[in-house]
Amino acid sequence: MEKLLTQLLQHDDNRLRIFDMGRRISKLPIDTFTRVEQNRIPYPLPFLHHAWVGLLLWNPSAKDQNLIWFLKLPLDEQGYLIQAARDDIVNRLLQNAIDPQSEQDALKDNPFAFTPDQEKMASFHALASCTLKTPASRYYEDVQQYLAGQLDRDYWSNLGLQGLADYVMRLDQGDNTNQLCKCISQLPEPLLLMLARLLEHTQPNPALQQRLADHLLQLLQHADTPPELIAALIRSLCGGSDKIRDQAIDAVLASPYALEAEVIVALATRCHTSLNQPQRLQRFLEQLAAGKAGQLGFNRILSDLMFLADLRPRILEAFRDPNRSEQLSQAIGEMLGSGFSTTGHAH
Results as ranks from 00 to 15, higher is better:
273 T>Y: 13
232 A>V: 10
219 L>C: 06
267 L>N: 05
290 A>V: 01
255 S>Y: 05
265 V>F: 12
220 L>K: 12
294 G>W: 06
245 R>S: 12
219 L>V: 02
266 A>P: 09
261 A>Q: 11
226 P>A: 10
255 S>M: 04
218 Q>N: 10
251 A>V: 02
211 R>K: 15
298 F>C: 05
278 P>F: 03
246 D>G: 11
294 G>N: 07
263 V>T: 09
285 L>M: 07
285 L>N: 00
220 L>V: 10
208 L>P: 03
217 L>A: 15
280 R>K: 09
254 A>T: 04
220 L>H: 11
209 Q>N: 07
269 T>F: 14
209 Q>L: 07
286 E>Q: 10
212 L>S: 01
247 Q>K: 12
245 R>A: 13
207 A>Q: 15
299 N>F: 02
253 L>F: 00
230 I>D: 00
273 T>L: 14
243 K>E: 15
216 L>G: 05
213 A>L: 04
232 A>Q: 08
277 Q>K: 13
279 Q>H: 10
279 Q>K: 13
274 S>Q: 13
222 H>M: 07
264 I>G: 01
267 L>V: 14
267 L>D: 05
207 A>M: 14
208 L>M: 04
248 A>S: 12
267 L>I: 14
207 A>D: 14
238 C>F: 07
291 G>R: 02
247 Q>Y: 07
279 Q>P: 05
220 L>P: 10
274 S>G: 12
244 I>R: 09
256 P>T: 02
221 Q>G: 07
285 L>W: 00
226 P>K: 11
254 A>G: 08
231 A>S: 11
221 Q>E: 15
287 Q>Y: 03
290 A>W: 01
215 H>F: 09
284 F>G: 00
259 L>Q: 13
209 Q>K: 04
275 L>A: 04
289 A>D: 04
232 A>P: 09
272 H>S: 15
233 L>E: 02
229 L>F: 05
285 L>F: 00
275 L>S: 02
284 F>M: 00
213 A>W: 00
212 L>P: 01
240 G>V: 08
212 L>Y: 00
213 A>M: 04
295 Q>E: 11
294 G>Y: 06
268 A>V: 06
287 Q>S: 14
278 P>T: 05
278 P>C: 06
218 Q>E: 11
263 V>W: 05
228 E>A: 11
287 Q>T: 10
245 R>Q: 11
295 Q>S: 10
247 Q>F: 06
212 L>G: 01
226 P>D: 06
256 P>Y: 05
290 A>K: 11
227 P>Y: 08
265 V>E: 15
246 D>A: 14
220 L>E: 13
283 R>D: 06
282 Q>F: 05
289 A>C: 08
217 L>K: 15
229 L>A: 02
225 T>H: 04
288 L>W: 03
232 A>W: 06
265 V>D: 13
221 Q>V: 06
296 L>A: 12
